[in-house]
Design a protein around this nucleic acid. Structure first.
Lengths: 192, 192
DNA sequence: CGATTCTTTGAAAACAGTCAATCTGTGTGG
DNA sequence: CCACACAGATTGACTGTTTTCAAAGAATCG
């Protein structure tokens, strides 16, 4: 399972066998069954987690009990809660496995150690956060500038590998519309 | 004008007089009149910019010619386009001064030099991007989970210092609703 | 003061949410 | 292997919200 992460890293940066050994030495493999939670609202998140296989949703539940999906995380992406992790606050998020999922878990302490000992790794992580910020800004822009149909179409184009692995009503939740509205939008699109 | 940045940094991190001198030596003061642009769509952004005084809006214009405001930047905050800056793409954004504005401009090259020579400065900048990402994720959550009135109220509470310096229709644009709808929402709120 | 920008208002149309019912597909236990 | 339960998707009817367009008021700036 570590191989997945090794391949991922190899594509992005150049590391020595010793670096990989060091990384592997502090990586903890964690498996989640479908419907299991990696994080629950109120918990404090103190890790970094890389998804080797599977699919997770990060969401918040509002006072009416409705879920709102912040993010899907699949293979070769990261999961967790930066806000809780970096500020030490209890998390507002839940993270649930939508498929059997395998993760690599790093404690914050170990992760910092890796960043210290492997500067390119640190730079890579910094760049990653920067990328995430860019993506998030673009999502904000989509939310304020596109109508529901446009957002849905863009989602399909941008994340085809997610779109056909999660139930529709979760895509609706991610887009900020009701499941019924999404169903009707799909009907509209079909007609064309 | 550099004093503003000095005070800002002093509150966040501890730097030596030499550090400040080094920073000042590469900082370029830039003034913008109201309605002047710092960046136009299509330009490549190759700076870091700190706002000492004034107020900017970052926005994108859609194919119908409608503006959508991504961000307001005021004193003690940063402006620019990370996406263009870090990927080297032409920017999708425009940045316009809504008030007479004074900025500190750093070329990317100089900024990197500062990060290399002053590690705490680099760490601070990294943390800053991380904060921005968190804020952006929270804005996404607000967009998909709150109705217009709630978003407006939250905006007023979160950014009072922006709310009374920009025209209403720009707040509407930031929130992703029409100016007319915002006007009606305000009327609703008043009634209460 | 006059021009321009900003805000408000009204009326109609488009869009989205809610609730309840039905339909579909999948999987589990008898 | 069938029947039933369950989760997900669709549909209808209704309600509520938001947009659009046009026009009129208010505020601001040169």
């Amino acid at each position: 399972m570590f191989k997945v992460f090794e391949d991922y890293l190899s594509e992005k940066i150049s590391l020595s066998p010793q670096d990989f050994e060091l990384i592997q030495s502090v990586a903890v493999i964690k498996k989640l069954r479908k419907h299991q939670y990696l994080l629950q609202e109120g918990d404090i998140w103190t890790y970094k987690a890389f998804v080797c296989q599977g699919l997770l949703r990060s969401f918040r539940t509002d006072d009416k009990g409705v879920d709102h999906i912040i993010q899907f995380s699949i293979e070769n992406w990261w999961a967790g809660d930066i806000e809780s992790g970096s500020l030490g606050h209890p998390s507002k998020n839940n993270i649930e496995a939508l498929e059997p999922t395998t993760l690599l878990l790093f404690s914050s302490k170990d992760f910092e150690m890796l960043e210290t000992k492997i500067p390119v790794f640190k730079d890579f992580v910094t760049a990653l956060i920067s990328q995430s910020y860019i993506a998030s800004q673009n999502r904000v822009h989509d939310n304020i500038s596109m109508n529901s149909e446009e957002r849905y179409s863009k989602f399909l184009k941008t994340y085809p590998q997610i779109a056909n692995r999660v139930p529709q009503h979760m895509i609706a939740s991610y887009l900020g519309i009701s499941a019924e509205t999404l169903s009707r939008i799909r009907k509209q699109i079909q007609k064309k």
